[in-house]
Design a protein around this nucleic acid. Structure first.
Lengths: 141, 141
DNA sequence: CGCAACTGTAATTGATATTATTACAGTACG
DNA sequence: CGTACTGTAATAATATCAATTACAGTTGCG
């Protein structure tokens, strides 16, 4: 799993928490504990997917464009981390003589594809809004 | 996800395919496409979990000790890759003033813990035996 | 206009993780 | 005893990841 996924989720939750749904890359970076340039890269990606709008120039920054309850972690996963469940390392080799060695890549791949679908299924039940609610609960406890 | 998980699964499937359920680290490494020393490390771990037996010395090697249909990928996952779903990178900081930044680690952690449980649930339905069957199907197709 | 405060993006550096390789002690068999 | 193995650790090579730097482009405002 990608750390950009975490940055994306955190940023969206933070924006959802802001009264105007707005913050600059510097503010977000301080909250997430990373570098502003990294935040800009991640949020630039979220903009392409239509979850945030950006305004350049003085007084600019990032702004949520959807309801927090309308953005699921599955949406974010697909935008930022699709395919990151399976390791990049590959076992076996299709050109091999052995039945096991030559077919392992394919079979392993199908296992991970399905695993990813299951994961997305779970993520589709969690929204940015529900994450924020969980945070509020913890804060009160 | 860990590449050792892949090596472990591949090795177990290979052993299950062998008539006597036996192979040396060198044979396995050639099939998996990695170094024998790495295979020994991974299979040493599987031995501790009781999935294989090892015999040192001449004519030695690794041998399955369970039915292929009795080993699930969830077993292998727990032995080799537990906790590897969540990225090691951490967002936010508990000592922070902001409600979002200070609680994000905890909430994110609980999300990933549950995701891992879901993943294990899926893996528990796949066995080394069923992987081998899939490989045979593909071979025939 | 011209400056200040932003985003967008790429390049570079530095840190960390991963994999391969080497080495060698220990074990078993014949 | 010699050969063929495993067990394990150390080292080296490589790849990946994250921080940092740099700078062009945009916007708002005095």
């Amino acid at each position: 799993m990608n750390s950009e996924f975490i940055i994306a989720v955190h940023s969206l939750v933070l924006l959802a928490h802001r009264p105007e749904g707005m913050a600059s890359s510097e503010e977000i970076a301080a909250n997430v504990c990373t570098h502003p340039a990294r935040v800009r890269k991640v949020l630039g990606c979220l903009r392409k997917e239509g979850f945030v709008a950006t305004r350049e120039g003085s007084g600019g920054g990032y702004k949520l464009t959807k309801e927090p309850s309308g953005i699921t972690l599955a949406d974010v996963y697909r935008a930022m981390a699709a395919g990151s469940l399976a390791p990049s390392w590959c076992s076996g080799n299709p050109d091999m003589d052995c039945m096991v060695g030559s077919n392992m890549q394919d079979v392993m791949n199908s296992v991970f594809c399905e695993a990813e679908r299951k994961l997305e299924g779970y993520f589709s039940e969690i929204t940015i809004g529900s994450m924020l609610s969980q945070i509020k609960e913890r804060q009160n406890a």
